[in-house]
Computed example of a mutant assay.
Amino acid sequence: MFHRLQSPLGSLTSQESQSESRSETNQSNGRKAPLTIIAKVNDLFEGDLTDDDQLVYVNNVIKGKLLESEELILQASNNTKAQFASSPTLSKEIMNAVMDALAAHTTMSRQAIDSEKVREGLKDVLLGPAQLYEALRDRGVQQGQEADQANR
């Protein structure tokens, strides 16, 4: 299921599970959570990274890997948030998620660099179910509306 997240840079299309989107919507009507994440991670990373780069990395890549951990699911189910936050397992699983994400993205990026077939497949996915064209058009409309408001 695709959702549009509002960031200072406009809408960002990301694939999230229905439970994640419900959780975000319940907490913030879909807008506050991404802004809060961006504000918190801006000081963590250095380099030429956009807010959207950081948001996707934290909220989709790392969080997605952590959601795969049966051990963390069990701990979250049986402990308070404070107890869960102090778990050494959480710190270990965050490191594992970072390493797994690096390995997975390196592997996929290398394959995309080396293969025209992979790049064409990416284009098909981006223009099909990932709705890149529609997201770009929506962002263009939103930027036009913001420009109109600024000129008033």
Rank of each mutant, 00 (worst) to 15 (best):
M1W: 13
M1N: 15
M1G: 14
F2V: 09
F2C: 06
F2W: 10
H3E: 06
L5T: 05
L5Y: 15
S7G: 11
S14K: 02
S17V: 04
Q18H: 12
R22A: 01
R22F: 03
T25C: 13
T25Y: 15
K32E: 08
A33K: 02
I37P: 01
I38M: 04
A39P: 03
A39Y: 00
K40W: 05
D43W: 01
L44G: 00
L44E: 04
F45E: 07
F45N: 04
D48V: 01
L49S: 09
L49N: 13
T50P: 00
D51Q: 07
D52P: 00
D53Y: 01
L55Y: 09
V56Y: 01
V56K: 00
Y57F: 15
V58W: 03
V58H: 02
N60I: 13
N60Q: 14
G64E: 00
L67C: 06
S69F: 08
E70M: 12
E70Q: 15
I73Q: 15
Q75N: 06
N78M: 13
N78V: 08
T80V: 07
T80C: 00
A82L: 15
Q83P: 05
F84L: 10
P88K: 10
P88S: 11
L90P: 06
K92H: 10
E93Y: 10
E93A: 12
V98Y: 09
M99F: 12
A101I: 01
A101N: 08
T106L: 02
A112G: 07
D114T: 05
S115N: 08
K117T: 11
V118E: 04
R119Y: 08
E120H: 06
G121M: 02
D124H: 13
V125S: 07
A130I: 01
L132Y: 14
L132H: 13
L132R: 14
A135S: 14
A135D: 09
A135F: 01
L136V: 07
L136C: 03
R137T: 10
Q142S: 05
Q145C: 10
A147P: 05
D148M: 11
D148N: 06
Q149R: 13
A150Q: 15
R152L: 14
